[in-house]
Write a protein that binds this DNA or RNA. Structure first.
Lengths: 253, 253
DNA sequence: TATAAACGTTTACGTAACGTCAATGTAAAG
DNA sequence: CTTTACATTGACGTTACGTAAACGTTTATA
């Protein structure tokens, strides 16, 4: 059983361009090329294509599919689990978008005109909403409704200048933290400075500070993959390092 | 209030590249360009950018945002509604993908357990039990106690390697069968290959092969809804097609 | 005041997975 | 022998920027 591109394409329900592309990226090479330069596919390639399309149906990207089917040692279950996580994250993102669009539609239908002041308010509200969406449940569980509501109130009452300050401070925390990470010493001067900046930063969100809450947050930075991803983005292990630094800073552990 | 790219970027939480890009596509032009060619943004542009970012947060594409904010006559509510439809469709697609990935993972994890030596024995037993539960009565009626017991013995004595072989062979039967189904010819090369692979597969369960029994089993694949569902899962009519192929293969009918 | 740091500019390639020409050669059908 | 169908490679377009190169400008500092 031998097929040219078009024949195989028809058989598998893809276009010939797709087959050429798969050849190009080395995902599916034809069995041979005839004298005229035509791609000729055999039974083995048909089977292989079917595997490829199976994973493609699941939304797996071609590079990952390549690894799965090229190397038999590759852990396909692991790959699929990772893929599932990506899909779940994407769904969460979509749900947040949908909720926001719906909220906006409600607002628009109620009141068409937004003043400048309202626009800025909306912007701050958006910051709060985003936080709620991403971390709301866990934070509310951990710190209680009241605390979270107070924090949100605090953000709402920020002036534009304060808003800029908190943004800058947040960046500085990250900068100092990464520098501290290079020293490797969570008790060192730099790491402690990062922890202190972080305390200041929290001042913009918490209406009163406590060492226990600070330490608890540090633990969450390690436990929750989304926080961890944020702090580890430049150097893996940064979240853990930061937690140690904050534990020392707060005298906990 | 005048800003250079970097200043506005920091204020709005985007990169300067983004602002240059928005300039390039005509989404947000600077108020003016100074003698050195620097982009200078004013208050109007700040407001405009905030609008842009608002819609961007909702996942609206830049081209649509452009229309919304450039022409005051543009129906933004309508645009948002359309956008919502797109998001909902995307979510549906994601749900389907997730369901599929999870189904695949369940199946795959089953196989992982199988390859674990300790649980392997238990698994073989389970296979036998399951078979007994589902088809035991009919099979025993059709082929007699002794045959069935022999078959079960054979499964119990399988090595792990054999078990994997039979699993792979079973998958291949399905693959070839579906391809054959597309040709529509149960007497064709592919269909006959599927029947032959099926005979080999039976070799792992039956202690001796007979054409009569093979043809009988093929009939059962059509008669029993559970078998039928298994073979028809991709294309309805496959079970009947397979029966025809096996009838031809065994010279029955 | 010299120089380095920080910031600005334009140009252009890379991303994922193909769709869609364009220019051209080959095979099959009438 | 011509038309038609199919094959090839090459290259651009898609989205919203990230990243880097090569180079000019402003600002801070020694």
């Amino acid at each position: 059983m031998e097929y040219t591109v078009q024949q195989l394409a028809k058989l598998a329900g893809v276009t010939s361009r797709t087959l050429r592309y798969y050849d190009e990226i080395g995902l599916l090479k034809p069995a041979r090329v005839n004298a005229s330069g035509y791609r000729i596919y055999g039974q083995k390639e048909v089977d292989r294509l079917q595997q490829i399309l199976f994973y493609r149906e699941l939304g797996v990207d071609l590079e990952t599919i390549k690894q799965i089917i090229m190397s038999p040692s590759f852990d396909d279950v692991q790959a699929l689990k990772q893929h599932r996580e990506k899909l779940l994250a994407e769904r969460r993102r979509l749900e947040a978008l949908i909720a926001n669009v719906e909220k906006t539609l409600l607002a628009k239908e109620g009141r068409i005109i937004m003043s400048d002041k309202e626009k800025f308010e909306a912007f701050k509200q958006q910051l709060i909403d985003e936080n709620e969406r991403n971390y709301g449940k866990e934070i509310r569980e951990k710190y209680g409704e009241e605390q979270v509501n107070k924090a949100n109130e605090k953000v709402k009452n920020m002036t534009q200048a304060q808003y800029e300050e908190v943004t800058k401070l947040g960046e500085e925390v990250l900068r100092v933290l990464h520098e501290a990470f290079l020293t490797g010493d969570p008790a060192g001067e730099l790491a402690q400075k990062a922890a202190d900046l972080h305390r200041q930063w929290l001042g913009y969100f918490w209406d009163h500070y406590s060492k226990e809450a600070h330490a608890g947050l540090a633990q969450m930075y390690v436990d929750d993959e989304r926080f961890k991803a944020y702090y580890d983005q430049k150097q893996p292990g940064t979240a853990e390092f930061f937690r140690e630094a904050i534990f020392i800073y707060t005298g906990k552990k």
